[in-house]
Write a protein that binds this DNA or RNA. Sequence first.
DNA 1: TCATGTTTAGTGGGTA
DNA 2: TACCCACTAAACATGA
Length: 272
Amino acid sequence: MPRPLKMTYGDQKPPYSYISLTAMAIIHSPQRLLPLSEIYRFIMEQFPYYRKNTQKWQNSLRHNLSFNDCFIKVPRNVTKAGKGSYWTLHPMAFDMFENGSLLRRRKRFRVKQLEKDLNNWKLPAANTEMASAHYLDDQMSHLGFTEPPMSAGHMPANFDLGSPVPASIPNYKTLPTIMPTCLPQLPVRPKRAFTIESLIAPDPKGLPHPDFGSAEANALKKQQFTLPFNFNELATHYQLYFPNFLYNSQYGNLPCYQKTPPLFHNGPLSVF
DNA sequence: TCATGTTTAGTGGGTA
DNA sequence: TACCCACTAAACATGA
């Protein structure tokens, strides 16, 4: 079982970098997407050390968000009030931590300028709630893959992300008992033409994707599983729910997924 | 006004 | 020693 998130560091400074702390907060959110204020709140809730001198560390954290390519700013939907943007983790940034450990970064994560420019153009055009899924989808397309990563072909037609996994799913027998009760709420967005008109147009039909702060979103929060402080475990969760997604699909060619071996263990996590 | 976001500069630790 | 990374501080711009 993943260790409970409530920390044992007390008032001691936790051994995580701001990048790691921010990544934790983002990953822990149902939609892998958080506004700055929620990132602050997560860190302060989990690590008492950061409940003091907030100005200092929050400045540093903002610096890290802007400075590091592994974090992507997702502009709010123009129709939604509110200050600031949402922040998410670059899909390929899962590989930057050594052995999945949040304590050590294997290398600095950098994005090519071309991709940066592309994102700066694309993300504001995308609907906020869809941005993360759409971004990932586009990344796949950009890399030459043609099928959306979470297409219906990879899971049963009646598969419900919020429900226990039915035993009929292939490979389910091998699943451990650490299944999260709250899974990535990334919706499947239909492919559309890569034009401004098409990208900013609403989806054909509404998809369940609760707003932050809504009752539905809060209910989802309560269901959240304890955060696995290990990217391999996180990747494993994805693999469990989308058995054919990473290893058995064309997306298994992506380096970041090739390097996340199955981790069906019950022992202590490598980060502790 | 304040929260948010960007940028620059400097420091220190680890490592090849 | 050079380089990379993380951290800190500060100034400034922007927008709700």
